[in-house]
Computed example of a mutant assay.
Amino acid sequence: MATIYQVAERAGVSLSTVSRVLNGKTTVNKALKAKVEQAMRELNYRPNSVARSLATNRSDSIGVLVSELNTPFFGDLMQAIESTLRNADKHVIITVGHNNLETEKDAVEFLISRNCDALIMHVEAMPDAYLKEVNDTRLPISVVNRQVEGLENSCISLDNEMGGYLATQHLISLGHKDIAYISGPSDKRDANQRLAGHRRALEEAGLPVNPALIYEGHYNEDDGKLGLLELLSQDIPFSALVCANDWMASGAMSCARDLGMSLPHDLSVVGFDDAVFAHHIFPRLTTVSNPIYQMGEMASRFILNNVYNHSLSLRPVFEPQLILRESTMRFEG
């Protein structure tokens, strides 16, 4: 295995010059840097990560804490983070919080113990004060899909309230007045924000917000099925349904077909997230975009800028868009 001494000898430079190149110093003459890099390639030299970490006080590793692993939503988020950071010669260590406060705190301690330089987090149970404490006293953080007071510059988020508004307002524009809603769990901020948008759209249109037409789910496909059955059991007619994510919309549509409904003639359905399967189910699902991949990229860029002195463009807040497909139609009475 080649050593730094052999690289210096092959390149015809001092050990300190090779060290400055390895540590990414910008003061190295371009010609000398090119010689060192050429020597490294010829010798197949691989820097000792432990030694470089001691020299730079950086591990080039970023901890990633997400709520779950078993959905396309978090798959897209992690793929974006890993790809963006890998392109910058950084690596990720991933762990899961399962929406449980103690598990999330344990995960943070684990990532810190692995000498991560920073953390990117999508967490639900962790209070704002704890996030601010970690950022102020432990490690720099970036928070995805959430706004934290005092950490506004560190947060990458979606306007979930506007997304909920767009979904319901679309149905109202098609003439629907009796609109049911299957929400996410009430302990999740994004679920509450989407429901608030639904309520705002109804109120602006002068339509009543009927609690009997709101069912609380947990973002699972089965919640869409159970939710639709529960809403129908109220014996209150409705012509349209908004679901707070695409999984629940898919479950509700499957249940509706099992009950003999023709979609969207008997029931118009709108989802949220624009998951990969949304344009494969029948009818193709009208939904609201949730650009989680792009949000993961932005969280990674924030860390690269603030920890590793990059100068990448940032977009902290994303606006949702309505994606029109075939699961909704004009109300025909």
Results as ranks from 00 to 15, higher is better:
residue 150 G to F: 13
residue 3 T to Q: 09
residue 174 L to T: 08
residue 141 I to A: 04
residue 184 G to I: 09
residue 231 L to R: 00
residue 186 S to A: 15
residue 158 L to N: 03
residue 34 A to R: 00
residue 291 P to L: 11
residue 272 F to R: 04
residue 278 A to I: 10
residue 219 Y to S: 08
residue 56 T to H: 07
residue 196 A to G: 01
residue 189 R to Y: 08
residue 80 A to V: 11
residue 137 T to R: 14
residue 190 D to V: 15
residue 28 V to Y: 01
residue 141 I to E: 02
residue 294 Q to F: 13
residue 330 R to N: 12
residue 274 D to F: 10
residue 226 L to Y: 02
residue 323 I to Q: 05
residue 82 E to I: 11
residue 205 A to P: 03
residue 169 Q to D: 08
residue 121 M to L: 10
residue 273 D to W: 06
residue 13 V to F: 14
residue 90 K to L: 15
residue 102 E to P: 08
residue 85 L to E: 07
residue 316 P to V: 11
residue 330 R to C: 15
residue 296 G to V: 08
residue 178 D to L: 04
residue 151 L to A: 05
residue 131 L to P: 05
residue 101 L to S: 15
residue 257 R to G: 08
residue 277 F to M: 14
residue 18 V to H: 11
residue 182 I to Y: 00
residue 40 M to Y: 02
residue 268 S to R: 12
residue 184 G to H: 09
residue 239 S to L: 05
residue 151 L to Q: 03
residue 309 N to E: 10
residue 135 N to D: 11
residue 254 S to H: 01
residue 140 P to K: 06
residue 58 R to I: 13
residue 53 S to C: 15
residue 16 S to I: 12
residue 154 S to F: 00
residue 162 M to Y: 00
residue 300 S to G: 11
residue 331 F to K: 15
residue 172 I to A: 10
residue 123 V to K: 10
residue 160 N to D: 12
residue 183 S to K: 05
residue 292 I to W: 11
residue 63 G to A: 05
residue 268 S to Q: 15
residue 9 E to K: 14
residue 41 R to V: 07
residue 198 H to W: 01
residue 128 D to F: 15
residue 252 A to V: 03
residue 296 G to D: 12
residue 15 L to Q: 13
residue 266 D to C: 07
residue 325 R to I: 15
residue 308 Y to V: 14
residue 221 E to S: 01
residue 332 E to G: 09
residue 102 E to T: 07
residue 206 G to D: 02
residue 156 I to G: 03
residue 31 A to E: 04
residue 35 K to A: 03
residue 64 V to Y: 08
residue 37 E to C: 00
residue 129 A to L: 14
residue 218 H to M: 10
residue 122 H to D: 12
residue 310 H to T: 06
residue 12 G to M: 10
residue 61 S to V: 14
residue 247 W to D: 05
residue 183 S to N: 08
residue 257 R to I: 12
residue 122 H to P: 06
residue 154 S to G: 01
residue 316 P to L: 12
residue 277 F to Y: 14
residue 302 F to L: 09
residue 85 L to P: 11
residue 129 A to H: 15
residue 210 N to R: 02
residue 46 R to S: 09
residue 94 I to F: 11
residue 242 V to E: 00
residue 61 S to K: 13
residue 111 L to A: 07
residue 60 D to P: 13
residue 315 R to A: 14
residue 104 E to K: 08
residue 29 N to E: 02
residue 64 V to I: 11
residue 291 P to A: 15
residue 194 R to V: 02
residue 256 A to T: 07
residue 170 H to W: 07
residue 1 M to H: 08
